[in-house]
Design a protein around this nucleic acid. Sequence first.
DNA 1: TATGAATGAGAATTCATTCAT
DNA 2: AATGAATGAATTCTCATTCAT
Lengths: 233, 233, 233, 233
Amino acid sequence: MAERSAKPQPDPPQRDAAFREKRARIQEAAMRVFSGKGFGKATMPDIAREAGVAVGTIYIYFRTKQEILLSIMESHLLVEPLRQFFGLAEEMDDRDLLSGLVEACLRFGHDNAREFIFLLSEILRDPYIRKMYAKRSLGPALELVEGYLSKRVEEGVFGSQLDLKAASRALAGMVVGMVILYGIEFERGKLGDQAASASSQAVRLVLEGLEIRDAKERREGKTGKKMRSGGAA
Amino acid sequence: MAERSAKPQPDPPQRDAAFREKRARIQEAAMRVFSGKGFGKATMPDIAREAGVAVGTIYIYFRTKQEILLSIMESHLLVEPLRQFFGLAEEMDDRDLLSGLVEACLRFGHDNAREFIFLLSEILRDPYIRKMYAKRSLGPALELVEGYLSKRVEEGVFGSQLDLKAASRALAGMVVGMVILYGIEFERGKLGDQAASASSQAVRLVLEGLEIRDAKERREGKTGKKMRSGGAA
Amino acid sequence: MAERSAKPQPDPPQRDAAFREKRARIQEAAMRVFSGKGFGKATMPDIAREAGVAVGTIYIYFRTKQEILLSIMESHLLVEPLRQFFGLAEEMDDRDLLSGLVEACLRFGHDNAREFIFLLSEILRDPYIRKMYAKRSLGPALELVEGYLSKRVEEGVFGSQLDLKAASRALAGMVVGMVILYGIEFERGKLGDQAASASSQAVRLVLEGLEIRDAKERREGKTGKKMRSGGAA
Amino acid sequence: MAERSAKPQPDPPQRDAAFREKRARIQEAAMRVFSGKGFGKATMPDIAREAGVAVGTIYIYFRTKQEILLSIMESHLLVEPLRQFFGLAEEMDDRDLLSGLVEACLRFGHDNAREFIFLLSEILRDPYIRKMYAKRSLGPALELVEGYLSKRVEEGVFGSQLDLKAASRALAGMVVGMVILYGIEFERGKLGDQAASASSQAVRLVLEGLEIRDAKERREGKTGKKMRSGGAA
DNA sequence: TATGAATGAGAATTCATTCAT
DNA sequence: AATGAATGAATTCTCATTCAT
């Protein structure tokens, strides 16, 4: 098969409820199959079997196997749940809010490791999907984080010298990276209590920083390369 | 087809220099092709063309296409460069050291985005490769980070209440996640100055924390704005 | 490559008539191609062309090329026609019965030399096929011959000192061997009248023996090595 | 690979002893490999390994893989041992002679089942080889048998109404067929005592016939139980 | 002569997609 | 709309043969 990258497709015409329902059924079946064996190894008969329809039927609802993937991506935009989360920001302590968010991400990422991994690797793989994802999902999500940080800076809680763009990416990156690292290290369902301690540690680290007060203050006066070792030993 | 996972292969017998050289040539060609179109879409003729050999020749040096992938993985263990980096730890200021490390990772990840992404997605995809990577590469790398943190704690630079395991994963995760996010957001080679500011911000964030002094102190007296103690879902 | 022998396959589910019909069509086409160029040299496109279907279609009906061969073997079990033949035994003179049988075998073997030869060589070649054939086809066929001999012995027509197992194998072997020898000696369709005289001679030989009465009787008294030559010259 | 039937090749030039010796070594190695996995599955590297030479070396001694097979066939012409056997005819009792011959064939065929089966199936498979074998090996061998029968008829030991051509083929066929049937029925080396009893039974059957005296005489007066004169289909 | 790495034409098999029913 | 048999291009891997050393 020649390399065929995802191409933008005109939206399929809107149909009635029965149509949308069956389309969703196929979509979900495809997601299960894709997650299980990867997009490349998943076959149309696999998906048909999982969805309980004939192979040909799938082609009534989707033009190509690719299109199923794209449609799945579109319905997995993570902005909405994130928006809800930050909606709570006003009413919660930062530490609790962020810990909860990170832990939820870790747990969700772990529980849905196969799906998460599959989506991520497909996003990474395909330039078109990547661009679409950057625009439709990642961008808005990062903006939410930026907005949260910005508000906290205005409130004088977070330092004003904060580079919002960089910090939001660092924070989001930490979460994404932790999900991946824990996904590589732990088999599915073996995460257990790690999630809670991991997230509270990560959040404390981000809120308070690694350095203890004295070292911090000490360092603020000078910038000497070897001052640490002198001070410590 | 049942999912066929990567299997461990007995090491091929050691051959002379010419053998190893050509093997490496094919490996590198394969890496370029894999990065360009993904493992699944890369064909043996693609690799042969890129390596300037005949298809059959590849099979003298590798048993299967998958074995090429595995051999690439083995030569991309990231421990060695990391070890070198932390070898400098004695002689450098933490902030400079970490900023340099993070920026190097970001830049390397960005410059080799396709390769990085390809390797990551294959690691994520295949349970055997994942396990091998966790053991051979990720584990040792995280230990290096832990060792560094541990030393700094002993020296009294970093806070002693640090959970080493969790913190090292949070830090490493931040870097990995940032590489991914920047990889999704920016096309290859378009990162530019972002890398430098992104890494220094991230490092400052980690060293000093988000919260400004006063807020921090203020909060140390009470426990959150509204005493919401419940975590998030 | 390690020698890969035929493996037993679970029976495919029973399908409707159209399915079985097309399966049979492919089977027959394959038989023609196999007989023409041998199993090893026959290619799937060859078979597809002969059957008037696409290559992929064959794989709907058979899992592998080898499975086609096995299915052909199964439908060529020679027991049934043999059973019919011996069903006539009651009503026919032995000489006519056996002559007819042998001649029929010779002619059939000759007319279908390529198929016969192909099947035989594949049976000989593959241990699994060989075992299966011994059990499913050759064994029952030999039992039929044994049964016939046994009945004749009981009737006092054939000598009671007959070793049924050995004799049935000698008789069956004679037929098989004759088919082969005539197959090697004569090109397809060049057998002509040979078949009739060959079979009647063979049957007379088996019924009456080579030795003429007197020699036989003479020899029954002694066992001398050189008596023949003395008596003859 | 396109079907390539064996073609007559000009004889390779005669070389010195060392040349012929190495040629023979390769031939023998090839025979072992062919017998083990069949001509089709045997690879040139297999043969080279077995012979202890490099692949390229084989091509100094043989033009193609086919040519190795042909040269093997030529050195396996079975006439010579048979001639020796019938050379003993003058000095032995027929029954002992024939029993010995048949048993020797059975045992040899069984002990060398793989080689025998391999040669037979290749002879059967390939028209050119078949023709060559018919002319160079089978023809002369059958002539030896005919000559033996002819002499016995002249001596008045065997009946004079014997059709020499047909009888010799029936006899030779019986032996060949028995070797095959026993080869199919018994795993290599499991023949044991069967060989002796099988051959003596077969020989007795051929010398004395199946029918007991009385039945034979009785039948000589009439013509079959029910006068069925028609042959079988 | 001897070597064995290199070659590349096939081979079997898979599977996304089509289309007649 | 639904079906699933049919298609055939594309893929991985094999191996007889060549040829530079």
